[in-house]
């Protein structure tokens, strides 16, 4: 058992190493230069050279790589070129906004997806099941950014219920309650969009795993003992399906993040997605890597 665990850990470490190296190479071998943005006559060439040295960009790539890998393992992720702050700082300040958005959206997805998926499994083959199937496929097929735009069209331009962008209003009454209600107000639209666009997947996965569980012997036994069908379905079946659903959580997270990235750009939401987008545009190597 210990050997197995050690082997898994070694494999994960190797995986991490491969990932880090791959990303480093991908970024640094790419054409383009962060210096290009500073290429204005107003900045003298010596100053640029100086900056290049201080960022360590004058060293050969191998040296940069070793230095960066060492720093990363030690928890120092370098200094962002454009924010002039440690990259970890930039990430840390943007993280809460993304967590809010992603967390709330995930919650919405689960609250809608689990019950609907279980219902579909309960009535597999019925008209409602087919309806949900088409609905979930349509939701999966709808690009998140387009759903976002349609939501903007409906709820900020046609019927101005929600604000179009940013985390909070510029002019704000003081006090905690206006602050929070204002923030929730701004959060609502992106969360709704991100949540709804992910519900389709959850309905499908829940339906499949509950369906698989429903025919298992221990549920048949529960029914035989006279436990009401409703209880069997919502408590026992759902619980047995939980492990496979947790697995689903693992591979929906990347999707959630990608969706968040695009929506952050669309809604000017100051989270990680925005940071990544900006960092890509200005070739801010330490920041992208973080």
């Amino acid at each position: 058992m210990l050997r197995y665990v050690l082997r898994r850990i070694a494999a994960s470490a190797l995986l991490l190493f491969l990932v880090l190296t791959g990303v480093f190479l991908l970024l640094r071998l790419a054409p383009g230069d962060p210096m290009a943005l500073l290429e204005t006559p107003r900045i003298p060439a010596e100053a640029r050279e100086e900056l290049r040295r201080s960022w360590g960009l004058d060293q050969p790539l191998a040296t940069q790589y070793v230095r960066w890998l060492g720093g990363t393992l030690a928890g120092d992720w370098g200094t962002s070129f454009s924010h002039h702050r440690p990259a970890t700082d930039v990430v840390r300040s943007a993280l809460p906004a993304t967590l809010w958005l992603g967390g709330a959206a995930l919650l919405l997805q689960l609250l809608l997806g689990l019950p609907l998926g279980t219902l579909a499994a309960r009535r597999a083959g019925s008209l409602g099941d087919h309806g949900l199937r088409v609905l979930s496929l349509s939701l999966y097929a709808t690009p998140t950014f387009w759903l976002g735009i349609v939501a903007l069209l409906c709820f900020t331009y046609r019927w101005p219920i929600f604000p179009p962008s940013h985390l909070q209003s510029v002019f704000l009454a003081p006090g905690a309650i206006p602050l929070w209600s204002d923030r929730l107000h701004h959060l609502a639209l992106p969360v709704l969009v991100l949540g709804i666009s992910g519900v389709g997947g959850w309905i499908r996965y829940t339906r499949a795993s509950v369906l698989e569980v429903l025919s298992q012997d221990h549920l048949v036994a529960l029914r035989a003992r006279g436990i009401p069908e409703r209880r069997v379905l919502w408590i026992h079946a759902l619980r047995s399906a939980l492990p496979s659903l947790l697995q689903v959580l693992g591979f929906t997270l990347p999707l959630l993040l990608s969706g968040a990235l695009i929506l952050e750009v669309l809604f000017s939401w100051p989270g990680l997605g925005q940071v990544t987008y900006g960092a890509l545009l200005s070739r801010d190597y330490p920041l992208i890597l973080a």
Partner: peptide, 24 residues
């Protein structure tokens, strides 16, 4: 398969975005 895992561990959009934005 480890190589596949490593690639799979990323959100594809991020990877593609980084590659497309920085390369071509």
């Amino acid at each position: 398969m480890r190589m596949a895992d490593a690639l799979f561990a990323f959100p594809q959009l991020f990877l593609v975005l980084a590659a497309a934005a920085l390369w071509s």
